[in-house]
Measured scan of single mutants.
Amino acid sequence: FDIYVVTADYLPLGAEQDAITLREGQYVEVLDAAHPLRWLVRTKPTKSSPSRQGWVSPAYLDRRL
């Protein structure tokens, strides 16, 4: 999967189903980028939180090589 970094805090609107909150600087794996406005991502697990999966706007993501 492609690795992206979150460029700004992402707080989903209440109406968005299956969306997750992301923090600036967080790394995520993009699982599904087929839709231009919503990408399915999975967060990297940390010592304090397990990995999470949900939909985010790709405008908040920047690809890492």
Rank of each mutant, 00 (worst) to 15 (best):
F1Y: 14
D2N: 11
D2Q: 13
I3H: 06
I3A: 05
Y4T: 02
V5I: 13
V6K: 00
T7F: 04
T7P: 01
T7Q: 05
A8P: 03
A8C: 07
A8M: 14
A8Q: 13
D9H: 06
Y10M: 04
Y10W: 10
Y10A: 03
Y10L: 05
L11C: 09
L11N: 14
L11Y: 15
L11T: 15
P12D: 07
P12G: 08
P12C: 06
P12M: 04
L13M: 13
L13K: 12
G14W: 12
G14P: 15
A15P: 11
A15N: 15
Q17L: 13
Q17G: 10
D18S: 08
D18R: 04
A19Y: 13
A19E: 12
A19R: 08
A19K: 07
I20Y: 06
I20Q: 03
T21Q: 13
T21F: 14
T21A: 13
T21G: 09
T21E: 14
L22H: 01
L22W: 03
L22M: 04
L22F: 04
R23P: 03
R23F: 15
R23K: 13
R23T: 11
E24H: 09
E24C: 09
G25I: 02
G25T: 02
G25S: 02
G25N: 03
G25Y: 03
Q26I: 05
Q26K: 02
Q26L: 04
Q26G: 03
Y27L: 15
Y27T: 09
Y27C: 07
V28W: 01
E29A: 06
E29T: 08
V30F: 01
V30I: 09
D32Y: 09
A33P: 07
A33D: 09
A33C: 14
A34P: 05
H35Q: 09
H35T: 10
P36Q: 07
L37Q: 11
L37F: 10
L37G: 12
W39C: 02
W39Q: 00
V41A: 01
V41R: 01
R42Y: 03
R42M: 06
R42K: 09
R42D: 01
T43S: 06
T43L: 08
K44N: 08
P45A: 13
P45S: 10
P45K: 07
P45D: 08
T46S: 11
T46L: 06
K47I: 12
S48Q: 12
S48E: 15
S48G: 15
S48A: 11
S49P: 02
S49T: 13
S49K: 10
S49H: 12
P50V: 08
P50T: 07
P50G: 07
P50M: 06
S51N: 03
S51D: 03
R52N: 07
R52C: 05
R52V: 15
Q53N: 05
Q53C: 09
G54I: 10
W55Q: 02
W55P: 01
W55I: 03
W55A: 01
V56T: 05
V56S: 01
V56I: 10
V56M: 06
V56A: 06
S57M: 06
S57K: 05
S57F: 04
P58V: 05
P58F: 02
A59G: 07
A59C: 07
A59S: 12
A59H: 10
Y60A: 05
Y60T: 03
Y60W: 06
L61S: 01
L61G: 01
L61N: 01
L61K: 00
R64G: 11
R64T: 13
L65P: 14
L65G: 13
